[in-house]
Each structure stands twice: as structure tokens, then as C-alpha cells.
Amino acid sequence: MSRSNSLVPYLLVLPGFLLASFIILWPIYQLGLISVSDVNRFGMLKGFAGAANFAAVLADPEFLGALWRTAIWTIGIVGGTLVVAFPVALILNQEFYGRALARIIIMLPWAISLTMTAIVWRWALNGESGMLNSALRSLGLIDTNIQWLAQASTAFPVQIVIGILVTVPFTVTIFLGGLSSIADDLYEAARLEGSSHWQTFRRITLPLMSPFVNIAIVLNTIYVFNSFPIIWATTQGGPANSTDILVTYLYKLGFRFGKLGEASALSLMMFVLLLAFTLLYVFMTSRMAKR
């Protein structure tokens, strides 16, 4: 009786586990298999290649450049989003006339596909007929058109700004959830004790929000690290690979150049990097649950 009881939980978990393995573990197994194989451009395995694919990726100078830019890209967007989203969430958490409308406006970009947003930006950034230049010109801020996407020194920062804009809605949602979970009595008690706005923010809001900030950082890092559409739709990683991040470089490697072995090796490396972040995420949520 007790023996069969101890089996029941596992039996109940089994279907879900099988489904998850099929969806998650099987592709990883395939990826691992291809990454150590000699593979033709159509994904047919031609034999064992050992670590040759990994070595080829690591030896490619474009890889290091893309890795470095991925770091800037991820830190820039995740950090920038934090800086923008926190005040926005604080404002949206106040009672004011038209708050519901303001919340909808902040959330709206989330409803549009990322690729569509990126393509609209590509038009807006066009040097001769783009809206950004004509807006800046009519405001008198610039005299000659800026060719935003012509060189990495302007293209990459603009891409990061677009990244921040599309990441803000999700982050604000998390923060609003966090803010509404802070009990009003805490603020009331603080007011009675005569604490200033800054002290309330510093001593109550910020510490109680830290788990939500952490989660936002980890989740955004995972999304942004793998984000493909913004860069691909605006510059395809160009000119001369100067705006490539790992995931755009991966696409070129796999589907343009047909080096599926190297592409698999690279995506495994990216997977390991992200797995580290995911473990961090699990660790944080479990810590938050204990509180």
C-alpha cells in the first residue's frame, strides 16, 4: 500500500515529464548530435566530427565581436528598461485622472509583433524619407539628414533604444504587480512617523520591490539575449557585421552559409549561457517564495 503510494506522484508527473522531454530535451539532443557531427548544408549527418565545429566557431573573429556586442546589447537594454520602467510604474501606480488610459498606452506596444515594430522603425530611420529625420529637421535640431542605419556608431545605439521601448511594457507590468502587493498600511505608518517621500521610497518601496526587479532583470535578459527581429529587420547585422549579435550571427551561419554544424555548436553555447540565467531565475523565485 505504502509502496504503491510512493509511486503515485511519479506516475502523475510522468505524462507531463514525457511531454516536456519531447518538446525540450529532444531538440537539445538533436542539437548536440549535429554539433559534434560532420553535417552538410541540408542538415544530413555525414559522420562524427568531435569538437571541430566548436573550435571553428571559437576561431571565427566575427564570433568574439558578436559576443561582445551581445553583452552591450543585453546590458544596455535590460539596464535602460529598468531605468525607464521603474519611474513609469511608480507614476502609473498613483491615483490620477485618466490612469486607465495611460496604462493602456504604455501597454500598447506589447500588442504589436516585434518584427512589425522593427520594420516600422526601419522606415522611420530611413535617411532621406524617414520620419525621424523629418521630425528632427522641423524641430530645427538638425540641418542635414542623419543616415541612422549607415554605420554602427548610430545604428547600434538606435537599435538598443528600440529594444528598450519594446521591453518597457512587460517590465512595467511586473513592477505594477509588485507595487500593488505592498500593503498601504506600511506607507500610512511611515507617514505617521513623519517620513519624507524619499525616505518612504528608499526604506519601503525599494526593498520590497527588489524581488520583482530581480525577476524583471533575469526574464528580460533571457528575452533580449535571444532577440532577433530588431537587428535583423533594420540592418541584418551590417554594415560589415558591425551590428551583429550572437543570434543574428547564428542565423547567417546556419541558414545563409549552410554551416549547420557550427550553428548547432554556437546555439548550444548560447543555451548554456542562458541556462545559467534560468537557474538564477529559479533560485530567485524559490527564495522569494520562502519569504
Binding site: 530611413n126 535617411g127 532621406e128 524619407s129 542635414t144 543616415q147 541612422w148 549607415a150 551590417g238 554594415p239
Partner: peptide, 20 residues
């Protein structure tokens, strides 16, 4: 046209169609 590295074939064709 300025900033040639931001012009794809379609972008240049558009300029041509606009008479620029």
C-alpha cells in the same frame, strides 16, 4: 546618395522612383 551602407537595392529603387 549619402549613407550608402544604409541603402538596400529596394531603398535605392525607391529613391529612383521618387526622382531623386
Amino acid at each position: 546618395q549619402p549613407g550608402v551602407t544604409s541603402y538596400s537595392r529596394e531603398d535605392v529603387q525607391n529613391l529612383f522612383k521618387q526622382g531623386k
